[in-house]
Write a protein that binds this DNA or RNA. Structure first.
Length: 281
DNA sequence: ACCTAAACCTGGGCGC
DNA sequence: TGCGCCCAGGTTTAGG
C-alpha cells in the first residue's frame, strides 16, 4: 500500500514514540511475516528510525529490523496507560479498533509495556532482521540531492519501456509507486506509456520537478488513504492526500486543468490514469 | 533485454 | 443470496 510519503509519515511518527525504548518481546502469529531470529533484537535498544525507499528501518547498535508493508501492511503504536492498566484507544474514528485483530501478524512489546502492532491483511509484507544495509539494491532517493537531472536523464535514456514503468522501478528510483508515478506524469503532462528514452530534455525537467512535487505534497498531507483498508499512520488515522488526486482513481471525471476526460488504462498490469488532453500520446 | 502473466494473499464490489 | 470475476498502494519469478 504505502509509497514513499506513507512510509515517511510512519517513520516520523515512530521516531517520536519508540526511539530509546528497548524491545522486551516479539510475538509472531504468522511465520512468513517475520524473517530471522527474533532473539537477535531482544533486549535491544532502538537508536534510530530510517526510511529507505518504501522500507522502514528500525536501527539497533549492531543490526537492523527492516519492515516492508507491501500492499496492506500497517504499523500501529499503542501507548500503555498506567492509570487504568489498559491500552488507551485515542479516538472514536479509530477504525483499526481493538488490537490485536485478525490481521495482526506480529506484536513488538517494549520495556515500558507500549506495543507496536504489525497488521497485514494480505500477508505480503514482512519484517526482517539484517546485519547491515548492503544489498538493498535501491536507486537514489528522489527527495535527496543525489536525484539530479543528469542522473535522471541517463537513467531514462537506457530504456524504451514506458516511462511510468521506469520511474516505478525501485532500482532506478526509490519510493515512487503507482499513485505518485501516475500523479507526477499528469503534472509533467506526459503520457504514461511514452517510451522513457523518447522524453525531451524539457519533459525530463518537468517530470523530475513533478515527482518531487507530488512526493512532498504526499508527505505534507500525511499520506494517501483512499480506500477503507488503506494506509493508516501509527495512531490509526488516515492521510489526506487522496483529496488532492488530480487523476488517480478519477476515471471519467474532468481533468482539473482542462476540459479533457480522465481515462484509465493498464500499464504493466497496473491501473493507470491520465488526461486525454494534457497527456497526449 | 524486453514484456507479460502469474504468484504471493484476502476481501470488497459488481454483474448476473 | 450466491457465484464468479475483477480490482487493490508491491515485488519477485517464470516463461515466451
Amino acid at each position: 500500500m504505502p509509497e514513499l510519503p506513507e512510509v515517511e509519515t510512519i517513520k516520523r511518527g515512530l521516531e517520536k514514540k519508540i526511539v530509546g525504548l528497548t524491545i522486551k518481546s516479539v510475538e509472531v502469529f504468522t511465520s512468513k511475516s517475520f524473517q530471522g531470529d527474533k532473539g537477535k533484537i531482544i533486549p535491544k535498544k532502538i537508536i534510530g528510525i530510517i526510511r529507505r525507499a518504501k522500507i522502514l528501518i528500525i536501527e539497533f547498535r549492531d543490526n537492523y529490523l527492516l519492515v516492508h508493508l507491501k500492499m496492506t501492511g500497517q504499523l500501529i503504536f499503542r501507548k500503555f496507560s498506567m492509570t487504568n492498566n489498559q491500552f488507551s484507544i485515542k479516538t472514536k474514528r479509530y477504525d483499526v479498533g481493538e488490537l490485536p485483530n485478525k490481521y495482526t501478524r506480529v506484536i513488538i512489546e517494549f520495556n515500558n509495556k507500549d506495543k507496536l502492532y504489525f497488521n497485514d491483511l494480505r500477508k505480503f509484507g514482512w519484517m526482517k532482521i539484517v546485519k547491515n544495509l548492503d544489498n538493498l539494491k535501491l536507486g537514489p532517493e528522489p527527495l535527496e540531492k543525489e536525484f539530479t537531472f543528469e542522473y535522471f536523464k541517463k537513467m531514462l535514456k537506457k530504456s524504451r519501456r514506458p516511462i511510468k514503468i521506469i520511474i516505478m522501478d525501485q532500482q532506478n528510483l526509490s519510493g515512487v509507486g503507482n499513485i505518485y508515478a501516475t500523479e507526477a506524469l499528469f503534472y509533467a503532462q506526459i503520457y504514461p506509456g511514452k517510451p522513457a528514452n523518447s522524453l525531451s530534455d524539457i519533459e525530463i525537467l518537468r517530470l523530475r520537478k513533478s515527482i518531487i512535487k507530488v512526493l512532498k505534497m504526499g508527505i505534507a498531507n500525511l499520506g494517501s488513504s483512499s480506500k477503507d483498508e488503506a494506509f493508516r499512520d501509527i495512531e490509526g488515522n488516515k492521510g489526506s492526500m487522496q483529496k488532492h488526486f488530480a487523476v488517480y482513481e478519477r476515471e471519467g471525471l474532468d481533468c482539473p486543468g482542462c476540459k479533457g476526460k480522465i481515462k484509465k488504462i493498464k500499464l504493466g498490469g497496473r491501473g493507470t490514469y491520465f488526461c486525454v488532453n494534457c497527456q497526449k500520446q
